[in-house]
Nucleic acid binder design. Structure first.
Lengths: 116, 116
DNA sequence: CTCGATTGTTACGCAACCGATATAGAGCAA
DNA sequence: TTGCTCTATATCGGTTGCGTAACAATCGAG
């Protein structure tokens, strides 16, 4: 299924979904934090601080702080890499998985109600 | 065109687009601010502080402050409602329109490269 | 073992956001 | 006019985020 999405549809889809997210009130989230969360849950592990920082093109302290916040919300977890103890592996959590799943449901539902 | 989107596709679409947004570095934006911006540009005017606050289910000061930020970035503008001078009308700007348009382009492009 | 390189974190100063409350101005009804 | 309501904003204290720079721990080559 190749997705042919017109710009107006795409924007409405984003708008509707973001609105759902805001209503979820877990919305203290920054766009950056959201992108970190999605990266961790959608891309193949392992995820390191440095790796995510490179992908987002931000500095490492940004990732560290975001992990503090996301960790407080139990949306991700940290673990030292046993192989190379300098690394910190960013791990998924049950709560985070449910959260991301809900996000996906939002979008699927909203996509179905898009005007053609 | 009814959009049948699987959850995994939807999430990847969101992830890719959010990543583009972060790279745009206009990403000091909060999810809330983003939702305000999209609301103003996708829904029919007029937009008042109260109206947007209701839609997002937040208090009015939240909107006022967000408009301060978005106004500083020239993504939206304010104008007093001449009819009812208690109201402030939130208006679109050229810069904001270009920004939202770019967002739409991101999504359209990303949607085309989604795996089926 | 030593030393430079790498990784993630912390410290600091600053700016922005939040919620709650208080305030100022405009409308409205009697 | 006199209240009362409605709108948006200002203000307050507390929290969180940012960028830069310094830091401790770890690795690995020599």
């Amino acid at each position: 299924m190749s997705l042919h999405l017109r710009s107006a549809q795409a924007l409405k889809l984003w708008h509707d979904s973001v609105l759902d997210l805001v209503h979820l009130d877990e919305s203290g989230l920054t766009v950056r934090q959201l992108s970190i969360l999605l990266t961790v849950y959608l891309e193949l592990p392992p995820h390191t601080v440095r790796g995510v920082a490179l992908k987002l093109k931000v500095t490492k302290p940004v990732i560290t702080r975001a992990l503090d916040s996301l960790g407080r919300l139990e949306l991700v977890a940290r673990r030292r890499d046993p192989a190379d103890k300098r690394n910190v592996l960013i791990q998924r959590t049950v709560k985070g998985a449910l959260f991301v799943e809900k996000l996906g449901d939002f979008m699927v539902t909203r996509a179905q109600t898009l005007p053609s």
